[in-house]
Write a protein that binds this DNA or RNA. Structure first.
Lengths: 358, 358
DNA sequence: ACGGTGCTTGACAACGTTGTCGAGTATCGC
DNA sequence: GCGATACTCGACAACGTTGTCAAGCACCGT
């Protein structure tokens, strides 16, 4: 691919990329013939083909996908819009999408919203300019109608959060939280805290609903004061600390996001407060390393990415398909922190279980 | 942006995106005038401009950036090629790059190599087809010559690993490791382990060199048997366990990557082996949460991303610029694990320091 | 009244590629 | 030997946009 003229270290002649015209001239054929060779079309004499291939090699010709797409009326680019790539969940999702896209020869145009509506809109509009093959989107403020409108341009699949009438791949936030809470209840917990972390996420709201539903099902009153939320995840450390120091502190805590979990762990670590039973919604590196391991609702992000991508590809060309809502199954990974009875036994645990340092 | 015709729930007429021609027809002007309005050029009567804007709104017109780029001969896309987006270091780098690119109205084409040369080559070639504005690359197998050749097409900035003659933004692997090792030595450590993790990374090799140099400087013999490496980071847990169980186990361990650190912590956690003094090259979520906190060489990935991006933008149009190698300063974040004397005191620590669970 | 000036606007070519179609040539059957 | 057939190859238009240039028009000073 890379040619081997001696590269001059300075004053590099800004060599311009070879066009199909250059290749044609060099091989002594028409541009159409080059095009045929490039696209592996039949009807080119072996000798001619060889000459063209040689010229392509010599000139380092790589076809301009933009011109190609323009002519053909399609694109080889899929868009991915997520909240933040720093979020372990989304980075895993994007990682699996990108891997699959590479296998299909597709390019990935990446954008993040920071969970801001205005930024989502800007990113969306910018990506529209690229005439995508399809879009995988973690929707923020965009409405069903707007998305259905997009659907007319290219297929769209929502992840993490769903929109009516649009294909989506999500986890069962409500059900998984219900199950996790039931685990707590079965162990005898009655006061269960909920660390919401960043406010405003509908998934988190659904998780809270799941917990409430489990409590109601067991005839346990729900205490609003055990719910901790804050504008930013990092700012949640202090309120959690306060919560766990209360005389009537919860004996178990359900953390709605892995960031909330880490903040909670930080709270537990920084101050000498009792570690409650803990289940985290969303797995994270740390969870399997600390002692006791943090039990998690595992949402399998790479599978979510895969499901979304496959659905997107299936959707290309199938404009009449009924919107399909995939709910990716979750499972609770038991590592110890979630399978702890309340109170009294807790003290035993504290004396017993050494930390990482031991 | 989104128009508001009632979206029909099924059998959606696959409405085709409006072209500049459609807008022109609707507004009763020529396409050139539409183009003028779109690009905020002067010389359009307010009345005409309004009619065009109205038509654009009605038709949801968004210009095709590919056609625009084709005509103008430029692009609004930068490429980013990294090892893996699941790696916390790279996800932070990409995050900051993407944020800056958005501010400049640039799109980010994202690709990962998995640190495989063949995949790097494929990604590179695919991205070349997009005629990038510039490329930020964590090079794997590509040579200086090949990259200098790329430089002729568009500016390129290497991150994490450098190539001669190409702009790069890296950290001082050697120096930082030297300093970290000296910290150990100052505390009386003589047997210092090195957990390399995945083999083959030149940055890791430089880190090992830094450590060796510090040891040599202090007149300490280097024991090759204290170096743990393996094909994959996860597979490193067992050998580390074995190492720490040896009668002549190292009293301090330098982990060359955050993944290696996590594997080491897992080893320490899974088996009842003494936790050595520990410094990690590269910060990670976990590091600040466990007890004791893991001391780290902080390489400030978001600053690296920013520096690389800014350099890239500066390079656009400046073909004659001398390659500039930016070395981003590191600092050692002391959290406890790295400031621990050897042996005897270690036992005290174990009895003393409770883990996360306490 | 007339040429000049300044402003708005549009016709046309071009960016690099591929689809359409027809020209040219060799091969075959009779 | 001749028309038919099959195959290779190229000229040209088109994708959607912007740059160039000139046309059209109102207005000015003399």
């Amino acid at each position: 691919m890379m040619h081997d003229e001696p590269a001059r270290t300075e004053g590099v002649a800004p060599r311009i990329r070879a066009r199909i015209t250059d290749v044609a001239a060099r091989a002594g054929v028409s541009i159409k013939t080059v095009s045929r060779v490039v696209n592996d079309e039949s009807g080119v004499l072996p000798g001619t083909r060889d000459r063209v291939i040689e010229a392509i090699r010599e000139l380092d010709f790589i076809p301009d996908v933009r011109a190609r797409a323009l002519k053909r009326g399609g694109t080889d680019t899929v868009g991915v819009i997520i909240d933040s790539i720093s979020d372990g969940f989304f980075s895993a999702v994007v990682s699996s999408i990108e891997k699959l896209a590479l296998a299909d020869g597709l390019s990935v145009l990446f954008a993040s919203t920071g969970y801001e509506e205005s930024r989502e809109r800007a990113q969306l509009e910018r990506l529209m300019g690229h005439r995508l093959r399809g879009l995988i989107l973690a929707p923020v403020g965009i409405t069903s109608d707007e998305l259905r409108d997009l659907q007319g341009q290219f297929p769209t699949v929502c992840i993490d959060r769903s929109r009516e009438g649009i294909d989506s791949v999500v986890v069962d936030d409500f059900g998984a939280s219900l199950e996790a809470t039931r685990t707590f209840i079965a162990q005898g917990h009655r006061r269960i805290g909920f660390v919401r972390g960043t406010i405003g996420y509908p998934t988190v709201a659904a998780r809270l609903q799941g917990m409430k539903s489990a409590l109601a099902g067991a005839g346990i009153d729900f205490d609003e004061s055990l719910v901790i939320s804050h504008e930013h995840d990092s700012a949640v450390v202090a309120p959690v600390t306060t919560l766990l120091r209360r005389p009537d502190a919860p004996t178990a805590v359900f953390c709605a996001t892995s960031l909330a979990s880490m903040a909670t762990l930080r709270a537990v670590h920084n101050d000498d407060v009792a570690m409650p039973a803990l289940i985290s919604f969303g797995d994270f590196d740390l969870a399997s390393i600390v002692n006791p391991g943090i039990s998690c609702v595992d949402q399998d992000p790479s599978y979510i990415g895969e499901a979304a991508y496959r659905r997107l590809i299936a959707l290309v060309g199938a404009t009449d398909a009924e919107p399909q809502h995939t709910v990716v199954p979750t499972r609770i990974v038991q590592r110890g922190s979630g399978e702890t009875p309340p109170r009294s036994d807790l003290r035993a645990l504290r004396a017993d279980a050494p930390g990482v340092a031991s």
